[in-house]
């Protein structure tokens, strides 16, 4: 198919808007100092923490998000529309407000936080777990909304056939729904991981900022921007590189897997 030429003008504008800022970032980088800045212990710690927490958050989204998407798309519960709207909330909420919300729930004086401390002796704020929770909170909608859409588009015909073949609901979910959803799950997970990786506001509000424990790459980049802009740019480039790596390596394989 030949694309209408008119399409290329706004598309080019979009590319410029997306790519030029990154070019700007690169142009400000002192390439000779880059290796040194990127390999500083603080940067390496933050990178490793970012990878670990984002991966864990993505895993958490997978475990609870896929079932949620199926419930939203296939369930026949009352109040499902309200629930669907609620899932969108983290997308609309400024992340800092999301972090505050988590703090008021799971913080020391929050309802959930008191419960956790009384029952298990656990305190969440300022821990790596808090980072993961903040990332999960903001990233979950990216997985759930994409999957719900895919489920709706696919319809329930394969599931109906599986049921007539004797598969009970959980077997249908495990052997039909999930496998058919794999491409969408893959692309959803990439988005989720990318969002978790870039998460800043909710993390710094709920988890604070401490090297090795809660200081992820975006937090380090922001902190460095206060004093040493070169280092900040270098760390940001590290983040960009990591995101690009994940998106280009994982995404095409998952999406374009088999016809």
């Amino acid at each position: 198919m030949r694309l209408p030429a008119l399409l290329f003008v706004p598309a080019a504008v979009a590319v410029a808007l997306l790519v030029l800022p990154v070019v700007g970032l690169l142009s400000r980088t002192d390439l000779r100092r880059l290796p040194e800045l990127v390999s500083s212990p603080a940067a390496v710690d933050a990178l490793w923490l970012s990878v670990r927490t984002s991966a864990t958050a993505t895993g958490l989204c997978l475990v609870v998000g896929v079932p949620l998407a199926v419930v939203l798309a296939r369930g026949r519960l009352p109040g499902l529309r309200l629930l669907r709207a609620t899932v969108l909330l983290p997308l609309v909420l400024p992340p800092v407000v999301g972090g505050l919300a988590l703090l008021y729930l799971l913080g020391r004086n929050g309802f959930g936080g008191r419960l956790l401390e009384a029952a298990l002796g656990i305190r969440l704020p300022f821990t790596t777990v808090a980072v993961v929770l903040a990332q999960t909170f903001v990233a979950m909608p990216f997985l759930v909304i994409g999957l719900e859409g895919a489920l709706r588009t696919a319809g329930a015909r394969y599931e109906a056939v599986a049921a007539t073949l004797g598969a009970r609901p959980f077997v249908v979910f495990r052997r039909v729904t999930v496998p058919l959803l794999l491409p969408s799950i893959g692309s959803g997970l990439v988005l989720t991981f990318a969002r978790a990786l870039g998460e800043f506001g909710a993390t710094i509000t709920f988890a604070g900022n401490f090297p090795g424990t809660t200081q992820t790459l975006p937090l380090l980049a922001y902190q460095l921007a206060q004093s040493d802009v070169d280092s900040s740019v270098a760390v940001s480039l590290l983040l960009v590189a990591l995101a690009l790596l994940v998106i280009t390596l994982v995404r095409p394989r998952v999406i374009e897997g088999s016809p």
Partner: peptide
Amino acid sequence: VPPHRRGVGLLA
């Protein structure tokens, strides 16, 4: 009886 226990097959 739910679909998976009815013993009713479907060919569409």
